[in-house]
Every structure is written in C-alpha cells, then in structure tokens.
C-alpha cells in the first residue's frame, strides 16, 4: 500500500514538475522583462516560435542541440523585435506583444507547411539525438531542461536581489528617470532584460517540442505563455512565489489529466474545463484584490522618454 502511495506521489510530483518546467522558464524570463518595466504579453508567441524552430531544426539536422540553439535564436529575434518596438520606438507594449503572438501563430504554420508539407506540423522526431531525453529516470521524464528550469529560479532571485545588474533592473522598472540620472542607460538595461526573457522563453519553447513532445504541432503552446504571465502576477513579480504559482498550475494540469472522467463522490464528474480555467480564474481573483494585492513595478508599460 505505502509503496503504491509513494509511487503515486512520485509520479504526480514528476508530472507536476514536467508540466511546470516550461511555465517556470517562461515565467522567469517574463519576470526579467516585466521587472525592467516592459510588459510581456508576447511570451506565448516567443515560446511558440521557439518550439517550432527547435523541432524544425532538430528534424533537419538530427541534433537536439541545434534545435535548442535555433529555439533560442528564434525567441531572441522576437525579443529584439519587441525591444525595438517598446524601447527604441516607444510603441505600445501590449500591442507589440499581441502582434508577436498573432505573428507567431500564423508564421509557424505557414513556414511549417512550406518546409514540411504536413499541414503545419514538423516531422516526428524519432531518431536518437533528435530529442532531449531523460537523464536519470525515464518514468519521471527528467530531461536537462527540467533541471535548467529548476536552477533558473535561484539564479533569477540571486541576479535580482544580490547583483548590480539586478538592482539596476529593479530600479529601471520603478523609476527609469532615476536610473538615467545616475548615468546608466535605460534602453540598454531594458534590452538586456528583454533578451534574457527571449533566452528563457526560447528554452521553454524547445522544451515543449523536443523534450516533452516529439515534434511541433500548431498552437502547441495552448495558452501556456499566458499561464506563465498569470504565474508572474500571482507571484507578485517575485521569483520564488512565481515559481510556487507555476508548480500549483502544473499540479492543476496533472490533476486535470488524472480526473478526466472520474466521478467524485457527492459532487459528480469534475468538469476538466473548470480545472483548465482555474489558473486564469485564480489570477483574476488575485488581481481583483480578493487574495492579497499584486503591485506591479511602477513604471511598467510606460515608454521612457527623455526629452521635455
């Protein structure tokens, strides 16, 4: 009995971490961007683009590592575009994020269809070396990116709290004018933050298509970028609580899969859709101030302008 139970707990835990890993990577990335004052509604699009290029390049080259590199490059390209719009050209950050999401949704299918002619899917990655495989436990699915995701949390915390870069990053999200007056380039800092976000959301995308799954399928992110965004808000823009939120959302997902078609005594069948909508509903409750209060960085979403 206890053996069964511990095995069940282990599997649930593993499933939780597995589903949470891309959320964690994405949330840590988004955290850098948002703490620097750049809203990132485009996490979803970056992750989707990265997932596509990871699978496409891995399928063509036969190497998962080239896939990872391509994922990062693709996400960075999107991040640069976002930076160009938000930082250099002081455009509306939400509009830019929405544009990137829509662009990604279209472009991945258009390119996938043109290159592989499988209705937007990439070829299945069934050759050895085309995917990132579990390192220790095939049952747990502990591929390298899971560890990277887990490591990204203390690293993000340390960078933000204990380093010069972090101090400046936090400052630029609160009051860019003060940073500028201290002789530090606001634009450069924000670009760095946006690029860090690209790096991490690129890894998250690679995780989806060449670690968790064996190939890219259209819209495979299915809102996970927004769940990561929800986790950032839920974590009140702090790394460790955001990590906690990712785990909770990951657990919800693992539970939703378990509960499919299961009847709960005295309640009846739990609608899976309810559990799927729960992260969004919880975030709305939080934002409404019913569960504590989430205070965003003060300068978030406001383009920095120097001239009078």
């Amino acid at each position: 009995m206890t053996g069964d139970l511990s095995a069940f707990v282990f599997l649930m835990l593993a499933a939780t971490v597995r589903t949470a890993a891309p959320l964690i990577l994405c949330a840590m990335g988004g955290l850098f961007s948002e703490r620097s004052g750049i809203v990132d509604v485009g996490l979803e699009g970056k992750m989707l683009t990265a997932a596509f290029f990871a699978a496409a390049v891995s399928a063509v080259t036969g190497s998962a590592w080239w896939g990872v590199a391509a994922a990062i490059a693709a996400a960075e390209a999107m991040a640069l575009l976002h930076g160009l719009a938000c930082i250099t050209y002081r455009g509306n950050q939400v509009v830019s994020g929405v544009a990137l999401n829509i662009l990604a949704a279209g472009l991945t299918v258009v390119l996938g269809n043109a290159w592989f002619a499988r209705g937007g899917q990439t070829p299945a990655l069934d050759q050895p070396g085309q995917r990132l495989m579990p390192l220790f436990s095939p049952r747990a699915g502990d591929n390298i990116l899971v560890y990277v995701a887990l490591l990204s949390v203390p690293l993000t915390w340390w960078l933000l709290a204990r380093t010069r870069f972090g101090l400046r990053l936090r400052a630029v999200g609160e009051m860019p004018l003060a940073v500028d007056a201290a002789g530090i380039s606001v634009g450069w800092l924000r670009y760095l933050a946006v690029l860090l976000c690209g790096l991490l959301s690129g890894l998250a995308g690679a995780y989806l298509s060449i670690a968790q799954n064996a190939g890219f399928s259209r819209d495979m992110t299915a809102g996970q970028g927004f769940i990561a965004l929800a986790a950032i808000i839920f974590g009140k823009w702090r790394p460790v609580p955001a990590f906690g939120a990712c785990l909770v959302f990951g657990l919800l997902d693992a539970v939703a899969i378990r509960l499919q078609g299961v009847r709960v005594p005295g309640f009846g069948e739990v609608p899976v859709q309810l559990i799927q909508a729960l992260p969004y509903l919880l975030t709305m409750f939080l934002l409404a101030g019913f569960i504590g209060r989430a205070v965003a960085p003060k300068a978030i979403g406001i383009p920095y302008e120097k001239e009078p």
């Binding site: 101090l167 400046r168 936090r170 609160e174 009051m175 004018l177 003060a178 940073v179 530090i184």
Partner: peptide, 15 residues
C-alpha cells in the same frame, strides 16, 4: 530621483 520602494542605501549605491 529616488525609488520609493528601495531603501536609502539601495538608492545611494544605484549607479
């Protein structure tokens, strides 16, 4: 040019 949520010391060393 002070950041409200920072401490005096954090503000002093910025830059």
């Amino acid at each position: 040019m002070l950041i409200d949520s920072f401490t005096v010391l954090e503000n002093l060393v910025l830059g």
